[in-house]
Nucleic acid binder design. Structure first.
Lengths: 344, 344
DNA sequence: AACAGTATTGCAAACGTTTTCATAAAATCA
DNA sequence: TGATTTTATGAAAACGTTTGCAATACTGTT
């Protein structure tokens, strides 16, 4: 019954078909309680007949909300931010919002550009990952009065609202875990910390904890790897081959840990007897790997949900934007990849 | 230099600051070659000073494109569609489009609803996953004249354009691989195939191949698992415990295979000596697991890229929408989780 | 100096909605 | 029955852009 040739079906064509005015059609869609049941039926039939789909752009131009929310993540590769994206999306979709997604590949200049695009589309709110952003970005956000939240990271002095975990605490937990198990010869596998407050916070805290325990790590035991299983596997392979004394590995996140684990097993190391590995993140699947990955949980799902709820609440109240800072608890999940150090 | 209190900075306020008309400001943004260099500078300064961000909704209402593309995937959990989303996004972002993402959790009724939302936002093109969609969905797509592509699946008789792989072929490759290695006692771990043409095609082809080899599989060896590592691990655990004769497992995708692998190792089975496992998908990370997962590659990255390019091309040409069907080659990746069957 | 041609700009209409206001019809009440 | 309230509807203005057309200001030519 739907028109095949619906070149341009707007509210007016529907009105014509239904024999009413455009205003009435609009009311049917937005305030159905105001229109006579008989007319309502008539109009609804016309809507179905014409295949009318309402034009958000046109209604947005009237000062209405766009009903979209922007989410900017570094990447959607692997499952690093998968749970965050999914739970954020589920949360806001239930509340009537559509997700506009952008990625920047850990490049804050790129982030600024995609942010601008989101603002051009007049998203009703914005969620970013972390607290490292360019000055341009912060300025832009300050100049627009759109609700913003930094997900994933927590800092009590953030310039914008944040809902996330304390990455330093996460790093400390990971380090303390290995220390408590008696490890003293520990390798560090982290991504570049430039423009990445999550990685930086974790690494700094790890170094601090190790230092506090009187441990000095040779530079050769600190290696870089981007968040890629293959890359991490390769650098860990080299590291473990060259420095057999290492009994523990602290990884920047679970993806790196996964690569580390893979390389270790390939080298014939027994986990955790010969080598302990701890990750950070507790991504989907980490608990069900074999051996199950010891890691520090960052409750991505909860963060995504709360970030979504926060933005929607801001929008609903048109609040005078008070900065909110919410710390989501991190939690050590000791599993099968860590065990007592055997004295070397 | 940016206004803090930018209540409503529209093209007119910029015009006022620059001392020109709104038309000129518009031209600066859209056809800078038409405006006098001096004026251009003046206007650009005013834009910066006011912190103006152009309103896509308002320009869209003029028949211009929204510069957004809709992507509907079942889920963003795990890395199932991660590569697809990422490469689609990268491709279209480079071409000036912003991604509007929606998920439906493998529920085609939900899919229809999110699709409507995307159309309300007047996305310039739409990419869906697979070819199973509700009649409502197909009708809606036919009634709007927006470019559409079904990514991931290929069928020579699809109702809409498709760019993807032949899932039957993928299933056949997986089955033939185990058969060639001499396996005859094979377990099948697949998700529900209702409303999921990818899973259905794979499973049907697997059953056909096994049947063709004269193998009858007891019903107890066919188990269901959603695409979740934890769930797959649990059902595989039960399956492998109850039926020790099984020498090979064909999994609906790599996520299930990951769970299967984990459960098998936990049970102390040697891979591949005691049990061979083959997945489908070759997700990011599958090659770098330990042991490396044997699987059938579905080139997600290529699919995402080509789907993006196809949509953008449609939009650019405003073509009379000829249906395009592109088959992306699947490829068996025999790795470490499969080996010759030992006669039981 | 008059003219034609070109470059630059502004005016105003248009896009598809929502919403205020006014009006007409119906229902209620005395 | 007439007055009053309630309900249902339409006309038109408004939103922030883009763009066709007209107007003006230059340029160069004779």
């Amino acid at each position: 019954m739907m028109k095949k040739q619906s070149y341009k079906v707007d509210i007016l064509s529907v009105a014509k078909v239904a024999g009413v005015s455009a205003a009435t059609v609009s009311r049917v869609m937005n305030h159905p309680e105001l229109v006579n049941p008989t007319t309502l039926k008539k109009v609804e039939r016309a809507i179905r007949k014409t295949g009318y789909v309402r034009n958000r752009a046109a209604q947005m131009i009237h000062g209405r909300r766009s009903a979209t929310l922007g989410l900017v993540v570094p990447t959607v590769n692997y499952s690093i931010f998968a749970e965050l994206v999914q739970s954020f999306n589920d949360t806001v979709a239930d509340l009537g919002f559509t997700l506009v997604l952008a990625t920047h590949g850990y490049d804050l200049t790129a982030e600024y550009k995609v942010l601008r695009k989101l603002l051009e589309h007049r998203v009703d709110g914005i969620a970013l990952v972390g607290l490292d952003h360019s000055d341009d970005t912060y300025r832009l956000l300050a100049s627009q009065d759109v609700p913003v939240v930094a997900a994933w990271s927590y800092s009590r002095s953030s310039r914008i609202s944040c809902i996330g975990s304390d990455n330093r605490e996460a790093g400390r937990l990971a380090a303390d875990h290995l220390l408590a198990l008696g490890h003293r010869r520990i390798g560090l596998v982290f991504p570049p910390t430039h423009e990445n407050d999550r990685a930086r916070g974790r690494l700094e805290a790890v170094e601090l904890a190790l230092h506090g325990a009187g441990i000095e790590i040779p530079d050769a035991w600190r290696v870089r790897s981007p968040y890629s299983v293959a890359h991490a596997k390769s650098v860990c392979h080299d590291l473990l081959r060259a420095h057999e004394g290492i009994t523990g590995l602290i990884c920047g996140n679970d993806i790196i840990a996964q690569g580390a684990l893979s390389s270790a097993m390939q080298l014939g190391l027994r986990i955790p007897q010969d080598l302990s590995i701890v990750g950070i993140g507790d991504f989907a699947g980490s608990a069900d790997m074999y051996p199950a990955l010891s890691t520090v949980q960052i409750p991505a799902q909860q963060i995504g949900m709360q970030a979504g709820e926060y933005l929607v609440a801001c929008i609903a109240h048109s609040d005078p934007q008070e900065i909110v800072r919410q710390k989501i608890k991190v939690d050590l999940k000791p599993r099968a990849t860590t065990g007592p150090a055997v004295s070397g």
